[in-house]
Design a protein around this nucleic acid. Sequence first.
DNA 1: TTGTACGCGTTATCAA
DNA 2: TTGATAACGCGTACAA
Lengths: 329, 329
Amino acid sequence: MMRITMEDVARHVGVSRALVSLAYRNRPGVSTETRERILHAGRELGYVPNRVAARLAGHGGNTLGVFLQDLHNDLFADLYEGTRAVADEAHKHLVLGVGALDGGRDAEALETLAQSRVDVVVAFGLQLPDTEVRTIAERVPMVCVLRGVADVDSVVSDNRHGARAATEHLIDLGHRRIAFLANPPSDGYMDRRHGYMETIAAAGLRPQVVQTTYSRETAAKDAGALLDGADAPTAIFAHNDQAAMGVLDALALRGLTPGRDVSVIGYDNSSLSKAPGTSLTTVDVDGVALGRSAAELALRRIEAPGAPSEWRTSFPTLVVRSTTGAPAA
Amino acid sequence: MMRITMEDVARHVGVSRALVSLAYRNRPGVSTETRERILHAGRELGYVPNRVAARLAGHGGNTLGVFLQDLHNDLFADLYEGTRAVADEAHKHLVLGVGALDGGRDAEALETLAQSRVDVVVAFGLQLPDTEVRTIAERVPMVCVLRGVADVDSVVSDNRHGARAATEHLIDLGHRRIAFLANPPSDGYMDRRHGYMETIAAAGLRPQVVQTTYSRETAAKDAGALLDGADAPTAIFAHNDQAAMGVLDALALRGLTPGRDVSVIGYDNSSLSKAPGTSLTTVDVDGVALGRSAAELALRRIEAPGAPSEWRTSFPTLVVRSTTGAPAA
DNA sequence: TTGTACGCGTTATCAA
DNA sequence: TTGATAACGCGTACAA
């Protein structure tokens, strides 16, 4: 089952290899009639263009790398959707790399994308420390999404703003003991915590931060401890929807009703939050729009490699559903 | 910012390029000391191996293509996880392609993988007709997952079995009017419908099949029509969890309680079904195991390109949660 | 409009 | 253990 090459097609049609190349990329320089003959012959012979060879020979500029932190969180599906739409319009190829929930595969995935010689990497949800990100960004241009890194192109949603809105909503409902279930502290992911802290402080309330992980199970455990402890909160703001699910798990386990006994807010407006029985109050970051924005920055970066880094900030919106209400009594 | 190549590293160390190549792939033929010197110099110069060139020059055999139908459905995240685990152990690279919910990008994504010269494609959830799949599989070896195709390596979960279990569960609960909210008919995705049909027939009941799409919104609309119609069912079995979400949406809209007023069963045991407020009764296919199995078949296919095609079938299990119960009256 | 020739960065073969 | 040298399949000036 020998592989057909351009050479074979050229010979079969009786033209040069260069012409076949031009024909397949429909570039000027080939008569319409010749092109037809070439494409027809290619089809007939079962020729499949070799993208690997093309990329080696080409001068680059048409491949975006995409890093996805976690396939289990469908916020990344939205981000990808946005990026893909823009990339399609610009006729750019996408090469994917997938991380892990705990960030343990970030470096490896980025390395793979670099070795694959993508022209720029669009990274959704990196957990690598800022300094490492900057180091990598010096070798392969990067666009960080959901996470701002100084001196690196970034597309972020204002997390502090979102956290403030969420916390204020709880305060407005009358809650006084509001806990924040925080993600592990790491560069670029502290703003939700800050937004919570400053809002709580401004209201003259006592902050209560419990640090958890990115796993729903751990979040459930940590929320459980919180609920069972003395002076349990009447409202819990979780760092994201997955963690909020854990909180809901903990509530269910204790026969407590979200929104009535304890209010819960998540973050991301993932599809999980939209389940009818869940109906989680959360913060919407509009992943598709962020993904589009990121792709646009990436394209710009390809055009102007030396341009100064650019940050794009958007503002999330609070989505009030049924897991928030006035405190129980 | 000239790219450093193997040549540069070789010159810098004072050895041949071939030796650098061997050193980087830690293959025999390089003294430990020389290897150290090479790797050290590489690091110092900022050398990044060019995977594109490597794949062009190499004889293949170490790259798996992975097709993911839809990033919004986290069943595919499980499948990917399983495949990645096996690929990692075998030191194989993964190249990803992403489809679309309606199957409209299947051909394109597979074409891209073929052009990327992957050695075999592991396809999760293809919607292409059987004949087209077979045609493509002749050019690039394929392993179809969640979907059996004759003469093509396939890893499937017995959908008929799962659908029977789900339907029987509803019958055992006492339901007599059980509807099936079906996916669009297409090759390889008819077994859930068949399993439902034969179980209903065996029980002497009247089948009621309503065809919907893969979108949650459409499912909600179609389920709504069903609920509003004459002789509304007391139980609805949806072709997957996403569709079941739509059913739950429709119930919520009408103030009906799942499991009490109307029973609902989904399929996939996706994370959506596990939300505490949802707690959807569903059928678990164990995506991670399927993903592992698929990767194993893929590896086998690389080793023995000419071997006869193999099918692997596993059996799903019913997961009873709270959306199913005895009929209302 | 067409063809020639060189380069892309590796891997692999074979001889030293 | 090392070092030339030929593929690998294609892009692209440049010449015709």
